[in-house]
Design a protein around this nucleic acid. Structure first.
Lengths: 194, 194
DNA sequence: TGACTTCTGTACCAAACGGTCCAATAATGA
DNA sequence: TCATTATTGGACCGTTTGGTACAGAAGTCA
């Protein structure tokens, strides 16, 4: 009744695919490369994930979930708003240390598809909104605890933050140095504290 | 001795190609699509521009030159720093009005190629530096004229500005609304004035 | 006219693309 | 053992990819 069990972890394979898409983008990633990093045969691939498109959508969703959860986690682990934001930006900057920075999968997708690839761009808008909401939530918690002094509403600050992070991630992908990134981050942090 | 003259303008064709790359990205743009918008036969194309890669490089260079010149022009036409920056950001936001925002070709390229496509990413770094330098120059002029009151150095402010613009352009490509974009822009402008 | 150059269109190329299908094999539970 | 389910790998599909080669028409100048 049960048959032979799968000998691959669907989530592990998904993660591997996500990493590759993350680095190379959708169009520049071939199916063969995907099969390679996923350690899957073509047949198994199409049995599990139905197409390259469907797989990419799954990766986007997984990434969104991953990043939102992670954000909440970092927020809880921080004892001040500044500490939270510094931790977040430190991870962003950490992307420079690899020779080939990955950026943010959501931003990468936003740039790659724009608004003309309906199925993907909708998911991108959703993901961007989710991340922004996560920041907003963190900011509200921070405000309640008196850990943040900002004249702006959490909503606006969250929009501003996601925009800045999207910018830095893109600049780093474009070759910005660690030094420069750090100085800009400081400027951003300062711009938040009135 | 002279032979039949070309009946296409190289710069016009280049501009058309640039527009397409700008919207769709490098990988997602096929040669046939390019030939279409350039109104060129395959043979003429390869005679004039030697390959898709070479053409893209030319487009990047043209874009860089275009944007730097434009920036200088807007700077000269502005009577205050705030006016200059408002004009710049207004153009950025104007990108939302088309159904399919194009973003910034340099940022798009930065995100698409990262640091692993050597020939392109070098040109991208160069272009980013050029834009940043253009902003820095404008800021220095502004500072000399007393048109800008900022505690930060022009260099840092220029880095910050290019990062912010890169962020907004990406967010707009990802579906950010005009309203949201405007509010973030205001926040950015305010963060510059002390 | 004739030399020269560029034009257009088409045929062709090998390679890669995403995707389907199938046969043989292997692991499980009943 | 037997049915069931997953495994693998390769054959195969039509399409598209970027790029080349060539032939003939057309415009320009001496």
């Amino acid at each position: 009744m049960t048959g032979r069990p799968k000998n691959f972890d669907q989530q592990v394979a998904l993660q591997a695919a996500m990493d590759l898409f993350w680095r190379r983008g959708y169009a520049a990633t071939s199916l063969d490369e995907l099969l390679g990093v996923m350690s899957l045969s073509k047949s198994s691939f199409y049995a599990e994930f139905k197409s390259k498109d469907a797989l990419y959508l799954e990766c986007l969703k997984k990434y969104q979930q991953m990043i939102v959860e992670h954000l909440e986690q970092v927020c809880l682990a921080s004892s001040s708003m500044r500490e939270f934001l510094e931790a977040v930006f430190e991870e962003v900057i950490g992307d420079t240390h690899s020779g080939d920075p990955k950026g943010c999968l959501i931003v990468n997708s936003a740039v790659e598809f724009g608004q003309h690839k309906s199925q993907f761009s909708e998911q991108v808008r959703c993901a961007l909104a989710a991340v922004q909401a996560a920041f907003e939530k963190a900011l509200r918690v921070g405000a309640r605890d008196g850990r943040l002094a900002s004249a702006d509403s959490p909503k606006l600050t969250a929009k501003y933050l996601t925009t800045c992070i999207s910018g830095i991630r893109s600049m780093i992908k474009g070759g910005m140095t660690v030094r420069d990134a750090k100085s800009v981050v400081l400027k951003i942090l300062d711009s938040l504290e009135k």
